[in-house]
Design a protein around this nucleic acid. Structure first.
Length: 795
DNA sequence: TAGTTTTAAGTTTTT
DNA sequence: CTTAAAACTA
């Protein structure tokens, strides 16, 4: 039996094994939901190292999220520890890595910081102050869109995004200004590396020898620019393996191009295709529901998932009157299942197995509540809190969106890059220290696109007393932050001249072609992860509310925040909210303690924050319910899933065009296939949206499911699924008609006088269409709006 | 310039 | 309804 496969390979099914052992030119793995795709990738990495002698550093594996990258690294390392030396990153983080090492090709200082969408908008606003915010946002969006499609300002294809000449001009000016500042935006992290490789053929040829194997996960969500980058990274020797599922492409709005996966075999000649269609996650009842919706899509490769886990429970669709009931329903389901487990708990001695089963039954962490938009989480949070059900909200980026955190980060960014006008404007007078618009304007004009820190220093003596004093505080704070840093290696003079950048362009690191010397060891990475957890868990704050410095980079962060007067401002300004803000700043400082107190460490810290804002280390052991957007569930699985708000206008939104509806269908498919054992849908008759109570219809997707595939709870609206006779409902409608008649005069506190124009039936009673004297027409549900609407009896 | 009041606008999904 | 920007006042 010496010729049998090693255990880690024999554990795979034939298709998975074929995918792992495949060798040839390029490979496309079409992996359905729950088909063990991650396992294939991680095993393949280990296999290449073990059996094929591929050096780990010659393997590049690209994932979609940082979380996925971490997970993959962990799993691969359990098969072979050397896998930890492979490069596992997101596309953007790979782009940043590449760009820092090869920035000189595009005249960029390697110490760039990364602008997020807000910074992008601020920069655009400073270029075109006459434009409204909505316009700025649109332009910002179109520019990122262009970059996702690998279109520069000079490319004729730009017309396809916005044909107007002034858009082209704005884009060009934006690029110029960004280059002057020396920063990059998200799109640049992909586009610039591709540009560099494309326009430097001999360098590109050298670089291609670094990575012999390139694997890309979630390939269905890559965009045109990422495809271009992939093409540039591939030499004649490179082995390319992409993995994806066209039915799970859900990031079109961000430039994802499903065609990348559909046309992959055409773009990479001699591609072999392997399909993974055995689903190990969900029961067939769940898969049936998921497939019946996505089957309505036209543009897809098509596949048939087979359930390896048997029939299972029929998914439940609950029609509920409103959001509160929806939250209560979800909470009730969870509570019930957990209590069931608890009450079954053995009183006396029972076997460990029985105990284990009970525990499984009763865990909060089996449950996930899914919703389309982050805003929907609120109602569930309230209800879960009330019932003392533990939960966690995944992925709302709130922490880094808090004003105090953005301010602190802007201070740090400015410290790294004193040409960063956007950060400078944000923090120079925050908290207010007498540096007004006029002074800011003078400094910016004086710097003329150059070093603002130096200009501030130079101008300070000639400014009026108040501005001078304020600016001095700002400059001194920066200097205190800088002196908390050690300078980059190789620099003799630790005392930098005033206003000098931490990194100078001429000091740029030499280009790196495949050395990989600075990569962290797997052990180091694991240790870092532990320290992150520890630091984040224990936020300490000083007694008087000052920010306490820990070790490493936190000294710099704490010093800077402290001396800029930010902490003092929050402390004195708002006692209640201020405490929270200071605690947040403290948390930021704590997170920084993991990085060395060097300029490089600061850069690394900022980059980490820009590229991975999720903050939470997913603590899989915690026994809590997960609240999460449908988008965020990609790659996750839960025993029991509740998909909420399955209503027309919410999921899908009604303003969707056909192609976008297809994308929402895929999102439905992604959400439903997260469930292992039980799946629930909730659909409300009424929902508070935009500050108004709207009458909802069940989602189009629900009507695409065969009624035998779902168990329906609650009253379905008429005409939906159940083919009830019209007359039956009429009788009920007549009931409410004795309260309301067409033509009744009504009064509403919000909208004034009006009359009943129409009465319609709905799941929970009559719907009144009221035409107000203002000309506005609104719908009211008679059972839920009585307080808002009164009938005026006329003679 | 800072703080307050008023008004308007916006709510998808994320690296 | 909430949040953010603009306008206004001290």
């Amino acid at each position: 039996m010496t010729d049998t496969l090693p255990t880690y390979l024999s554990a795979l099914n034939p298709e998975q094994r074929e995918a792992v052992l495949h060798n040839g030119k390029s490979l496309l793995i079409l992996a359905g939901a729950g088909s063990g795709k991650t396992r294939v990738i991680t095993t393949k990495i280990a296999y290449l190292i073990r059996e094929r002698g591929v050096p780990p550093s010659a393997i590049l594996a690209v994932t979609f999220t940082n979380k996925a990258a971490r997970e993959m690294a962990e799993r691969a390392a359990t098969i072979d520890s050397r896998a930890g030396y492979a490069m596992l990153r997101t596309f953007h983080s790979f782009g940043a890595w590449f760009l820092r090492r090869n920035a000189r090709f595009v005249g960029l200082n390697p110490a760039f910081t990364i602008y997020d969408d807000d910074d992008m908008a601020s920069l655009l606003a400073s270029l075109a102050p006459e434009k409204s915010r909505a316009d700025i946002k649109l332009i910002a969006h179109q520019i990122s869109w262009a970059k996702d499609y690998f279109i520069g300002p000079a490319d004729p294809e730009l017309k396809l995004i916005n044909h107007r000449k002034d858009f082209q001009k704005t884009y060009a000016r934006y690029e110029e200004r960004l280059a002057e500042i020396g920063n990059v935006d998200f799109g640049d992290l992909i586009k610039k590396p591709a540009d560099i490789l494309r326009s430097n053929p001999s360098f590109a040829e050298d670089f291609r020898s670094r990575f012999k194997v390139i694997m890309i996960d979630e390939y269905q969500d890559t965009n045109v620019a990422q495809f271009a980058l992939l093409k540039e990274l591939c030499g004649p020797e490179t082995y390319v393996c992409v993995v994806g599922d066209d039915d799970q492409s859900i990031y079109r709005f961000r430039g994802a191009e499903v065609r990348n996966i559909i046309e992959f075999p055409d773009r990479f000649p001699n591609t072999d295709i392997i399909r993974l269609e055995r689903n190990y996650r969900s029961t067939s009842a769940i898969l049936r529901v998921a497939s019946s919706v996505v089957d309505n899509n036209k543009g897809r490769l098509g596949k048939t998932l087979s359930a390896e886990r048997g029939a299972g429970k029929i998914p439940v669709l609950a029609f509920l009157p409103n959001q509160d009931e929806e939250a209560a329903f979800a909470a009730h389901l969870i509570e019930n299942s957990v209590q069931l487990g608890a009450s079954d708990q053995p009183r006396g001695g029972k076997t460990a197995k029985a105990k284990h089963e009970n525990e499984e039954k009763g865990r909060y962490s089996d449950w996930a509540i899914l919703y389309r938009t982050n805003a929907q989480s609120l109602g569930f949070e309230t209800e879960l809190l009330r019932r003392h059900i533990p939960y966690r909200v995944v992925g709302s980026l709130k922490f880094y969106e808090r004003e105090e955190i953005k301010d602190a980060l802007a201070l740090l960014s400015f410290l790294v890059n004193p040409r960063d006008e956007i950060s400078f404007r944000r923090v120079v007078n925050k908290p207010a220290r007498g540096v007004g618009e006029a002074t800011v304007g003078r400094v910016i004009a004086d710097a003329a696109g150059g070093d603002l820190w130096a200009s501030a220093r130079r101008l300070s003596p000639v400014l009026p007393a108040r501005a001078r004093a304020g600016l001095s505080v700002f400059i001194e704070a920066l200097e205190s932050g800088r002196s908390a840093l050690t300078y980059p290696a190789g620099r003799r003079d630790t005392r930098a001249p005033a206003g000098e950048t931490l990194f100078d362009a001429d000091e740029a690191r030499p280009p790196e072609v495949g050395d990989g010397a600075v990569e962290k060891t797997p052990a180091k990475k694991a240790e870092d992860a532990k320290r992150i957890k520890k630091a984040v868990k224990k936020p300490r704050t000083g007694e008087k509310g000052e920010i306490i410095a820990g070790e490493g980079l936190s000294i710099c962060v704490a010093t800077l925040i402290q001396n800029a007067g930010v902490a003092a401002y929050h402390r004195t300004h708002d006692e209640i909210a201020g405490n929270q803000r200071i605690a947040n700043l403290q948390e930021l400082a704590n997170a920084a303690s993991l990085y060395p107190a060097t300029a490089d460490g600061l850069l690394e810290f900022l980059e980490h924050i820009e590229l991975d804002r999720s903050m939470e280390e997913r603590d899989t052991d915690a026994n809590v319910v997960t609240l999460i957007t449908l988008h965020n569930t990609k790659g996750l699985e839960f025993r029991r899933v509740i998909i909420t708000g399955v209503e027309q206008g919410v999921f899908p939104r009604d303003d969707k065009k056909e192609e976008e509806v297809e994308e929402e269908r895929r999102l439905f498919y992604v959400g439903a296939t997260r469930a292992m054992d039980e799946l629930y849908f909730t659909s409300c008759a009424v929902r508070r949206m935009f500050g108004q109570t709207a009458i909802m219809e069940p989602s189009l997707f629900l009507s695409e499911i065969d009624k035998s595939a779902l168990r329906v709870i609650g009253a379905a609206p008429r005409g939906f699924l159940m083919k009830t006779k019209l007359g039956k409902r009429r009788a009920k409608g007549a009931k409410s008609a004795d309260e309301w008649d067409i033509g009744d005069r009504v009064f509403s506190d919000d909208h004034g006088y009006g009359y009943v124009k129409e009465i319609r039936d709905h799941a929970t009673g009559a719907v009144l269409i009221i035409r107000f004297d203002t000309g506005k027409e609104l719908s009211f549900l008679s059972n839920y709006h009585r307080s808002n609407l009164t009938r005026i009896d006329e003679e």
